[in-house]
Design a protein around this nucleic acid. Structure first.
Lengths: 187, 187
DNA sequence: CATATGAGTGACTGTACACTCACTCACCCC
DNA sequence: GGGGTGAGTGAGTGTACAGTCACTCATATG
Protein backbone atom coordinates (compact mmCIF):
# COMPACT_ATOMS: atom_id res chain seq x y z
CA UNK A 1 0.00 0.00 0.00
CA UNK A 2 1.74 3.13 -1.08
CA UNK A 3 0.70 6.18 0.94
CA UNK A 4 1.62 8.22 -2.11
CA UNK A 5 -0.93 9.82 -4.34
CA UNK A 6 -1.04 6.63 -6.29
CA UNK A 7 -4.13 7.05 -8.40
CA UNK A 8 -2.87 4.35 -10.68
CA UNK A 9 -5.19 1.54 -11.52
CA UNK A 10 -5.34 -1.13 -14.14
CA UNK A 11 -7.07 -0.43 -17.42
CA UNK A 12 -9.38 -3.38 -16.85
CA UNK A 13 -10.42 -2.01 -13.47
CA UNK A 14 -10.90 1.49 -14.82
CA UNK A 15 -13.01 0.56 -17.85
CA UNK A 16 -16.22 -0.28 -15.99
CA UNK A 17 -15.92 2.91 -13.95
CA UNK A 18 -15.66 4.91 -17.14
CA UNK A 19 -18.60 2.99 -18.58
CA UNK A 20 -20.63 3.95 -15.51
CA UNK A 21 -19.76 7.60 -16.02
CA UNK A 22 -20.66 7.21 -19.66
CA UNK A 23 -24.13 6.03 -18.69
CA UNK A 24 -24.99 9.30 -16.97
CA UNK A 25 -23.13 11.45 -19.47
CA UNK A 26 -24.75 9.91 -22.55
CA UNK A 27 -28.08 9.88 -20.74
CA UNK A 28 -27.78 13.63 -20.41
CA UNK A 29 -26.75 14.50 -23.94
CA UNK A 30 -27.35 11.49 -26.13
CA UNK A 31 -24.80 9.99 -28.49
CA UNK A 32 -24.08 12.94 -30.74
CA UNK A 33 -24.68 15.51 -28.02
CA UNK A 34 -22.11 14.14 -25.59
CA UNK A 35 -18.38 14.57 -25.99
CA UNK A 36 -15.68 12.22 -24.91
CA UNK A 37 -14.28 15.13 -22.91
CA UNK A 38 -17.42 15.20 -20.75
CA UNK A 39 -17.18 11.49 -20.00
CA UNK A 40 -13.50 12.01 -19.21
CA UNK A 41 -14.26 14.83 -16.78
CA UNK A 42 -16.95 12.76 -15.05
CA UNK A 43 -14.50 9.90 -14.79
CA UNK A 44 -11.68 12.06 -13.48
CA UNK A 45 -9.29 11.15 -16.27
CA UNK A 46 -8.09 12.78 -19.47
CA UNK A 47 -9.99 12.57 -22.75
CA UNK A 48 -6.95 10.92 -24.27
CA UNK A 49 -7.13 8.08 -21.82
CA UNK A 50 -10.83 7.54 -22.41
CA UNK A 51 -9.98 7.07 -26.05
CA UNK A 52 -7.31 4.59 -25.08
CA UNK A 53 -9.72 2.59 -22.91
CA UNK A 54 -12.47 2.67 -25.54
CA UNK A 55 -11.03 3.01 -29.02
CA UNK A 56 -14.07 4.75 -30.47
CA UNK A 57 -16.96 6.78 -29.13
CA UNK A 58 -19.29 4.15 -30.52
CA UNK A 59 -17.67 1.45 -28.39
CA UNK A 60 -17.94 3.69 -25.35
CA UNK A 61 -21.64 4.16 -25.96
CA UNK A 62 -22.15 0.45 -26.41
CA UNK A 63 -20.40 -0.20 -23.10
CA UNK A 64 -22.69 2.32 -21.42
CA UNK A 65 -25.76 0.74 -22.97
CA UNK A 66 -24.73 -2.75 -21.90
CA UNK A 67 -24.19 -1.49 -18.36
CA UNK A 68 -27.62 0.12 -18.49
CA UNK A 69 -29.46 -2.96 -19.69
CA UNK A 70 -27.70 -5.14 -17.16
CA UNK A 71 -28.90 -2.87 -14.39
CA UNK A 72 -32.43 -2.99 -15.74
CA UNK A 73 -32.52 -6.78 -15.67
CA UNK A 74 -31.08 -6.78 -12.16
CA UNK A 75 -33.82 -4.43 -11.05
CA UNK A 76 -36.49 -6.65 -12.56
CA UNK A 77 -34.95 -9.59 -10.76
CA UNK A 78 -35.04 -7.81 -7.42
CA UNK A 79 -38.63 -6.77 -8.08
CA UNK A 80 -39.70 -10.29 -8.92
CA UNK A 81 -38.01 -11.64 -5.79
CA UNK A 82 -39.88 -9.12 -3.70
CA UNK A 83 -43.29 -9.94 -5.21
CA UNK A 84 -46.02 -10.76 -2.74
CA UNK A 85 -46.92 -13.90 -4.65
CA UNK A 86 -45.61 -15.89 -7.59
CA UNK A 87 -48.75 -15.39 -9.63
CA UNK A 88 -47.53 -14.28 -13.09
CA UNK A 89 -49.47 -11.03 -13.14
CA UNK A 90 -48.35 -10.16 -9.64
CA UNK A 91 -44.73 -10.85 -10.50
CA UNK A 92 -44.98 -8.75 -13.65
CA UNK A 93 -46.53 -5.95 -11.63
CA UNK A 94 -43.74 -6.15 -9.09
CA UNK A 95 -41.21 -5.94 -11.91
CA UNK A 96 -42.96 -2.85 -13.18
CA UNK A 97 -42.75 -1.23 -9.78
CA UNK A 98 -39.09 -2.10 -9.49
CA UNK A 99 -38.46 -0.63 -12.90
CA UNK A 100 -40.30 2.56 -12.03
CA UNK A 101 -38.17 2.83 -8.92
CA UNK A 102 -34.96 2.18 -10.85
CA UNK A 103 -35.54 4.93 -13.38
CA UNK A 104 -36.39 7.54 -10.79
CA UNK A 105 -33.17 9.34 -11.67
CA UNK A 106 -33.98 9.22 -15.39
CA UNK A 107 -30.48 8.26 -16.50
CA UNK A 108 -31.17 4.65 -17.39
CA UNK A 109 -34.40 5.64 -19.06
CA UNK A 110 -32.91 8.44 -21.12
CA UNK A 111 -30.04 6.27 -22.27
CA UNK A 112 -32.46 3.73 -23.68
CA UNK A 113 -34.32 6.46 -25.55
CA UNK A 114 -31.06 7.84 -26.93
CA UNK A 115 -30.04 4.34 -27.94
CA UNK A 116 -33.26 3.94 -29.92
CA UNK A 117 -32.39 7.17 -31.64
CA UNK A 118 -29.04 5.90 -32.91
CA UNK A 119 -29.94 2.24 -33.29
CA UNK A 120 -29.14 2.43 -36.99
CA UNK A 121 -25.47 2.44 -36.05
CA UNK A 122 -24.94 -1.30 -36.41
CA UNK A 123 -23.06 -1.96 -33.18
CA UNK A 124 -25.47 0.13 -31.14
CA UNK A 125 -28.50 -1.51 -32.70
CA UNK A 126 -27.06 -4.91 -31.91
CA UNK A 127 -26.41 -3.93 -28.30
CA UNK A 128 -29.92 -2.57 -27.98
CA UNK A 129 -31.44 -5.74 -29.36
CA UNK A 130 -29.30 -7.84 -27.05
CA UNK A 131 -30.48 -5.79 -24.09
CA UNK A 132 -34.10 -6.03 -25.12
CA UNK A 133 -33.74 -9.73 -25.58
CA UNK A 134 -32.46 -10.23 -22.07
CA UNK A 135 -35.16 -8.00 -20.60
CA UNK A 136 -37.93 -9.68 -22.54
CA UNK A 137 -36.81 -13.25 -22.00
CA UNK A 138 -36.21 -12.57 -18.34
CA UNK A 139 -39.63 -11.00 -17.86
CA UNK A 140 -41.25 -13.91 -19.62
CA UNK A 141 -39.39 -16.76 -17.95
CA UNK A 142 -39.22 -15.33 -14.46
CA UNK A 143 -42.88 -14.34 -14.33
CA UNK A 144 -44.28 -17.20 -16.36
CA UNK A 145 -46.85 -14.78 -17.76
CA UNK A 146 -48.47 -15.14 -21.16
CA UNK A 147 -46.85 -13.65 -24.24
CA UNK A 148 -49.59 -11.06 -24.40
CA UNK A 149 -49.02 -10.01 -20.81
CA UNK A 150 -45.28 -9.63 -21.39
CA UNK A 151 -45.96 -7.64 -24.53
CA UNK A 152 -48.26 -5.36 -22.56
CA UNK A 153 -45.61 -5.02 -19.89
CA UNK A 154 -43.10 -3.80 -22.46
CA UNK A 155 -45.62 -1.53 -24.17
CA UNK A 156 -46.45 0.30 -20.97
CA UNK A 157 -42.75 0.53 -20.23
CA UNK A 158 -42.32 2.37 -23.49
CA UNK A 159 -45.24 4.62 -22.66
CA UNK A 160 -43.49 5.39 -19.40
CA UNK A 161 -40.41 6.44 -21.37
CA UNK A 162 -42.50 8.81 -23.43
CA UNK A 163 -44.15 10.31 -20.37
CA UNK A 164 -40.83 11.02 -18.71
CA UNK A 165 -38.92 12.28 -21.74
CA UNK A 166 -41.70 14.60 -22.82
CA UNK A 167 -42.36 15.78 -19.28
CA UNK A 168 -45.99 14.78 -19.45
CA UNK A 169 -46.33 13.92 -15.78
CA UNK A 170 -46.18 17.58 -14.81
CA UNK A 171 -49.01 18.62 -17.08
CA UNK A 172 -52.38 19.03 -15.32
CA UNK A 173 -54.49 18.71 -18.50
CA UNK A 174 -56.74 15.72 -18.98
CA UNK A 175 -54.93 14.33 -22.02
CA UNK A 176 -51.75 14.20 -19.92
CA UNK A 177 -53.24 12.55 -16.85
CA UNK A 178 -54.95 10.08 -19.15
CA UNK A 179 -51.54 8.97 -20.39
CA UNK A 180 -49.84 8.95 -16.99
CA UNK A 181 -52.64 7.25 -15.09
CA UNK A 182 -51.45 4.22 -13.19
CA UNK A 183 -47.86 4.65 -14.31
CA UNK A 184 -45.83 4.70 -11.12
CA UNK A 185 -43.70 7.81 -10.88
CA UNK A 186 -40.73 8.53 -8.73
CA UNK A 187 -41.82 10.15 -5.45
CA UNK B 1 -25.51 28.52 -59.96
CA UNK B 2 -26.72 29.76 -63.27
CA UNK B 3 -29.44 32.33 -62.78
CA UNK B 4 -31.48 30.57 -65.44
CA UNK B 5 -32.07 27.40 -63.43
CA UNK B 6 -33.02 29.26 -60.27
CA UNK B 7 -36.73 29.32 -59.78
CA UNK B 8 -37.76 32.19 -57.62
CA UNK B 9 -40.45 31.68 -55.07
CA UNK B 10 -41.64 33.52 -52.00
CA UNK B 11 -40.06 32.73 -48.65
CA UNK B 12 -43.47 31.87 -47.21
CA UNK B 13 -44.09 29.38 -49.99
CA UNK B 14 -40.65 27.85 -49.68
CA UNK B 15 -40.67 27.39 -45.90
CA UNK B 16 -43.10 24.46 -45.77
CA UNK B 17 -41.21 22.72 -48.56
CA UNK B 18 -38.02 23.02 -46.58
CA UNK B 19 -39.82 21.80 -43.48
CA UNK B 20 -40.94 18.75 -45.42
CA UNK B 21 -37.37 18.05 -46.47
CA UNK B 22 -36.32 18.54 -42.87
CA UNK B 23 -38.72 15.82 -41.78
CA UNK B 24 -36.95 13.17 -43.82
CA UNK B 25 -33.48 14.55 -43.18
CA UNK B 26 -33.86 14.77 -39.41
CA UNK B 27 -35.63 11.41 -39.42
CA UNK B 28 -32.51 9.94 -40.96
CA UNK B 29 -29.89 11.48 -38.69
CA UNK B 30 -31.64 12.95 -35.69
CA UNK B 31 -31.15 16.47 -34.42
CA UNK B 32 -27.43 16.47 -33.72
CA UNK B 33 -26.63 14.02 -36.51
CA UNK B 34 -28.17 16.08 -39.29
CA UNK B 35 -26.59 19.17 -40.77
CA UNK B 36 -28.32 22.19 -42.19
CA UNK B 37 -26.37 21.50 -45.37
CA UNK B 38 -28.15 18.17 -45.79
CA UNK B 39 -31.57 19.75 -45.44
CA UNK B 40 -30.47 22.41 -47.91
CA UNK B 41 -29.38 19.83 -50.45
CA UNK B 42 -32.64 17.91 -50.08
CA UNK B 43 -34.53 21.16 -50.56
CA UNK B 44 -32.50 22.21 -53.59
CA UNK B 45 -31.35 25.49 -52.03
CA UNK B 46 -28.21 26.74 -50.35
CA UNK B 47 -27.43 26.21 -46.67
CA UNK B 48 -27.33 29.97 -46.25
CA UNK B 49 -30.89 30.31 -47.42
CA UNK B 50 -32.11 27.58 -45.09
CA UNK B 51 -30.63 29.61 -42.26
CA UNK B 52 -32.45 32.64 -43.54
CA UNK B 53 -35.78 30.83 -43.69
CA UNK B 54 -35.28 29.23 -40.26
CA UNK B 55 -33.02 31.35 -38.08
CA UNK B 56 -31.73 28.44 -36.01
CA UNK B 57 -31.40 24.72 -36.45
CA UNK B 58 -33.67 24.30 -33.46
CA UNK B 59 -36.47 26.19 -35.18
CA UNK B 60 -36.00 24.08 -38.27
CA UNK B 61 -36.35 20.92 -36.24
CA UNK B 62 -39.45 22.24 -34.51
CA UNK B 63 -41.00 23.02 -37.90
CA UNK B 64 -40.24 19.48 -39.03
CA UNK B 65 -41.75 18.03 -35.88
CA UNK B 66 -44.90 20.10 -36.23
CA UNK B 67 -45.27 18.95 -39.81
CA UNK B 68 -44.79 15.38 -38.64
CA UNK B 69 -47.38 15.52 -35.88
CA UNK B 70 -49.86 17.21 -38.15
CA UNK B 71 -49.53 14.38 -40.64
CA UNK B 72 -50.01 11.84 -37.86
CA UNK B 73 -53.29 13.39 -36.76
CA UNK B 74 -54.47 13.58 -40.36
CA UNK B 75 -53.73 9.88 -40.75
CA UNK B 76 -55.69 9.03 -37.62
CA UNK B 77 -58.55 11.09 -38.96
CA UNK B 78 -58.58 9.24 -42.26
CA UNK B 79 -58.40 5.95 -40.40
CA UNK B 80 -61.32 6.83 -38.17
CA UNK B 81 -63.37 7.90 -41.17
CA UNK B 82 -62.70 4.57 -42.84
CA UNK B 83 -63.68 2.52 -39.78
CA UNK B 84 -66.26 -0.17 -40.37
CA UNK B 85 -68.32 1.01 -37.42
CA UNK B 86 -68.31 3.87 -34.96
CA UNK B 87 -67.84 1.59 -31.98
CA UNK B 88 -64.99 3.19 -29.92
CA UNK B 89 -62.76 0.13 -29.99
CA UNK B 90 -63.30 -0.36 -33.70
CA UNK B 91 -62.48 3.28 -34.40
CA UNK B 92 -59.34 3.08 -32.26
CA UNK B 93 -58.31 -0.06 -34.11
CA UNK B 94 -58.85 1.64 -37.44
CA UNK B 95 -56.69 4.53 -36.26
CA UNK B 96 -53.98 2.08 -35.32
CA UNK B 97 -54.07 0.52 -38.76
CA UNK B 98 -53.94 3.92 -40.39
CA UNK B 99 -50.96 4.84 -38.25
CA UNK B 100 -49.17 1.62 -39.10
CA UNK B 101 -49.73 2.38 -42.75
CA UNK B 102 -48.53 5.96 -42.38
CA UNK B 103 -45.23 5.03 -40.81
CA UNK B 104 -44.41 2.39 -43.38
CA UNK B 105 -41.58 4.59 -44.63
CA UNK B 106 -40.24 5.07 -41.08
CA UNK B 107 -39.58 8.79 -41.44
CA UNK B 108 -42.44 10.05 -39.30
CA UNK B 109 -41.76 7.38 -36.72
CA UNK B 110 -38.03 8.04 -36.51
CA UNK B 111 -38.56 11.76 -36.20
CA UNK B 112 -40.76 11.24 -33.16
CA UNK B 113 -38.11 9.03 -31.55
CA UNK B 114 -35.42 11.60 -32.28
CA UNK B 115 -37.65 14.30 -30.84
CA UNK B 116 -37.99 12.35 -27.60
CA UNK B 117 -34.24 12.18 -27.51
CA UNK B 118 -33.82 15.94 -27.56
CA UNK B 119 -37.00 16.89 -25.75
CA UNK B 120 -34.95 18.60 -23.06
CA UNK B 121 -34.35 21.43 -25.50
CA UNK B 122 -37.22 23.62 -24.34
CA UNK B 123 -38.71 24.54 -27.70
CA UNK B 124 -38.52 20.96 -28.95
CA UNK B 125 -40.06 19.57 -25.79
CA UNK B 126 -42.89 22.06 -26.09
CA UNK B 127 -43.50 21.11 -29.70
CA UNK B 128 -43.46 17.43 -28.81
CA UNK B 129 -45.96 17.94 -26.00
CA UNK B 130 -48.18 19.97 -28.29
CA UNK B 131 -48.11 17.22 -30.87
CA UNK B 132 -48.85 14.54 -28.31
CA UNK B 133 -51.68 16.62 -26.98
CA UNK B 134 -53.31 16.86 -30.36
CA UNK B 135 -52.84 13.16 -31.06
CA UNK B 136 -54.17 12.12 -27.68
CA UNK B 137 -57.12 14.47 -27.58
CA UNK B 138 -58.03 13.59 -31.12
CA UNK B 139 -57.87 9.86 -30.46
CA UNK B 140 -60.00 10.29 -27.37
CA UNK B 141 -62.65 12.62 -28.78
CA UNK B 142 -62.94 11.09 -32.24
CA UNK B 143 -63.20 7.52 -30.97
CA UNK B 144 -65.11 8.19 -27.79
CA UNK B 145 -63.16 5.38 -26.17
CA UNK B 146 -62.38 5.16 -22.47
CA UNK B 147 -59.28 6.81 -21.05
CA UNK B 148 -57.77 3.40 -20.44
CA UNK B 149 -58.34 2.35 -24.05
CA UNK B 150 -56.70 5.53 -25.35
CA UNK B 151 -53.78 5.01 -22.99
CA UNK B 152 -53.39 1.48 -24.29
CA UNK B 153 -53.57 2.79 -27.85
CA UNK B 154 -50.67 5.13 -27.15
CA UNK B 155 -48.68 2.52 -25.26
CA UNK B 156 -48.80 0.06 -28.13
CA UNK B 157 -47.91 2.89 -30.48
CA UNK B 158 -44.75 3.40 -28.48
CA UNK B 159 -44.03 -0.32 -28.54
CA UNK B 160 -44.36 -0.14 -32.29
CA UNK B 161 -41.73 2.61 -32.33
CA UNK B 162 -39.39 0.41 -30.36
CA UNK B 163 -39.94 -2.56 -32.64
CA UNK B 164 -39.16 -0.55 -35.73
CA UNK B 165 -36.19 1.44 -34.43
CA UNK B 166 -34.52 -1.63 -32.96
CA UNK B 167 -35.30 -3.75 -36.01
CA UNK B 168 -37.08 -6.35 -33.92
CA UNK B 169 -39.56 -7.34 -36.60
CA UNK B 170 -36.86 -9.11 -38.59
CA UNK B 171 -35.74 -11.32 -35.72
CA UNK B 172 -37.12 -14.86 -35.82
CA UNK B 173 -36.56 -15.56 -32.10
CA UNK B 174 -39.51 -16.01 -29.78
CA UNK B 175 -38.83 -12.97 -27.63
CA UNK B 176 -38.98 -10.84 -30.77
CA UNK B 177 -42.17 -12.28 -32.20
CA UNK B 178 -43.71 -11.99 -28.76
CA UNK B 179 -43.13 -8.23 -28.92
CA UNK B 180 -44.21 -7.79 -32.52
CA UNK B 181 -47.28 -9.99 -32.38
CA UNK B 182 -50.39 -8.23 -33.61
CA UNK B 183 -48.51 -5.02 -34.40
CA UNK B 184 -49.32 -4.27 -38.01
CA UNK B 185 -46.19 -3.91 -40.10
CA UNK B 186 -45.65 -2.33 -43.44
CA UNK B 187 -45.95 -4.93 -46.23
C1' DC C 1 -35.11 53.36 -68.07
C1' DA C 2 -34.36 53.82 -62.92
C1' DT C 3 -34.82 52.32 -58.70
C1' DA C 4 -36.57 49.39 -55.06
C1' DT C 5 -37.48 44.93 -52.98
C1' DG C 6 -36.66 40.57 -51.83
C1' DA C 7 -34.86 35.74 -53.35
C1' DG C 8 -30.89 33.32 -53.18
C1' DT C 9 -25.78 32.41 -52.77
C1' DG C 10 -20.42 31.98 -52.16
C1' DA C 11 -17.12 32.65 -49.15
C1' DC C 12 -15.98 33.05 -44.79
C1' DT C 13 -15.49 32.71 -39.41
C1' DG C 14 -15.25 30.80 -35.15
C1' DT C 15 -15.60 26.95 -32.71
C1' DA C 16 -16.01 22.34 -31.17
C1' DC C 17 -14.75 17.77 -31.30
C1' DA C 18 -12.87 12.78 -32.21
C1' DC C 19 -8.81 10.87 -32.31
C1' DT C 20 -3.34 10.70 -32.28
C1' DC C 21 1.24 10.81 -30.58
C1' DA C 22 5.23 11.65 -28.23
C1' DC C 23 6.02 11.93 -23.88
C1' DT C 24 6.22 11.49 -18.33
C1' DC C 25 6.04 8.98 -14.48
C1' DA C 26 4.58 5.29 -11.19
C1' DC C 27 5.32 0.62 -10.03
C1' DC C 28 7.56 -4.06 -10.24
C1' DC C 29 11.26 -7.28 -10.61
C1' DC C 30 15.99 -8.08 -10.66
C1' DG D 1 19.58 1.38 -8.62
C1' DG D 2 18.44 0.28 -13.20
C1' DG D 3 15.44 -1.15 -16.72
C1' DG D 4 10.96 -2.77 -18.48
C1' DT D 5 5.88 -2.30 -18.63
C1' DG D 6 1.92 -0.01 -18.65
C1' DA D 7 -0.99 4.08 -16.69
C1' DG D 8 -1.98 8.49 -17.84
C1' DT D 9 -1.51 13.12 -20.17
C1' DG D 10 -0.61 17.78 -22.92
C1' DA D 11 -0.52 19.40 -27.01
C1' DG D 12 -1.76 18.95 -31.06
C1' DT D 13 -4.33 17.73 -36.04
C1' DG D 14 -7.79 17.49 -39.24
C1' DT D 15 -12.28 18.15 -40.01
C1' DA D 16 -17.00 19.38 -39.81
C1' DC D 17 -20.48 22.47 -38.96
C1' DA D 18 -23.81 26.57 -37.42
C1' DG D 19 -24.42 30.88 -38.40
C1' DT D 20 -23.02 35.56 -40.93
C1' DC D 21 -22.46 38.90 -44.52
C1' DA D 22 -21.74 41.25 -48.52
C1' DC D 23 -23.11 40.44 -52.67
C1' DT D 24 -25.90 39.12 -57.40
C1' DC D 25 -29.79 38.96 -59.87
C1' DA D 26 -34.82 38.62 -60.95
C1' DT D 27 -38.96 40.86 -60.88
C1' DA D 28 -42.16 44.83 -60.12
C1' DT D 29 -43.55 49.42 -60.53
C1' DG D 30 -43.34 54.30 -61.86
Amino acid sequence: MSPRSSILSTADARRPLVAASAVTAFARGGYHGTTIAVVARDSGISPAYVSKLFPTKERLFVAALEECMTRVVEALERGADAASSQDPDVVLDAMGDAYAHLIADRALLMLQVHAQSVADVPEIGAALRAGLESVTTFAKSRSGASDAAVQRFMAYGQLCHLIVTAGIEQIPAHWATLLSDGITHPG
